[in-house]
Amino acid sequence: MIKLLKCEYRKTKGRYIFLTALLVTAVQIVWALYGKYTDTVLMNGWMTFLYQLPLVNAIFLPLLSIIVSSRLCDIEHKGVIFKQLSVISEKGKIFDAKFIYGVSIVIFCNIISWASTIIFGYIIGFSSDVPINLYLLYLLFTIAPTVAVYIFQHTLSMLFKNQAVTFFAGIIGTFCGLFSMFLPNIPLLRKLFIWGYYGVLQFVGMFGWTKETRMADVYFAVMDIDWLFFAILIAASVVMYIIGRILFCRKEV
């Protein structure tokens, strides 16, 4: 496995996959943190971030997953290398190695954007210490849906030679996920799509907004965490991975 991972590293040298991922993350950070920081925002800064960032994640992280997985698998499809690789190694192991390599890049980018959020909060002067427990939970709830989405994209990228398919499927999924976050009155909707789990696992809510007072009386509070659906997400990820692996092993490359 270590050899296969090294092999992945060598193949991707000079393809700027890591740099591309970092660029997408940089755009995400700028997009997430850009805004007006009034005194009210500074007072509730940490909680505001926990409330707002899942939406930004729901747009950027699936796209990051599509780009990374597609670029990683594209090398093989282009050069018809899967055939050669499957002679020297088991197909399942190739699937695993590519997944581990790609998902590590995506998780690393998640951690970078998470850490930069906290550093930014301190620099801009949020009026309290970071609620580290909540932020660790937020990190977990960011990584979990991202890994699920990555598994889906990875499987498609490995199975289809035409990378347009993976892009279109991923974009349509992202679209469903994003829209489902704007429909809190239909909670089932977001639970149906893996892309909607950034919303399902959002555990800070905004309360007190009315048409008349607008943001004046707004406050943020921690809501109940849907552990059941967290478990369902993990289970779905495992099942998707196993199915994807089996399909890839059976495929004539």
Partner: peptide
């Protein structure tokens, strides 16, 4: 020549 890079640019362009 890359497939994904122009798409990334399209996304950034949309933003």
């Amino acid at each position: 020549k890359s497939f994904a890079l122009p798409i990334g640019i399209a996304f950034a362009g949309g933003l």
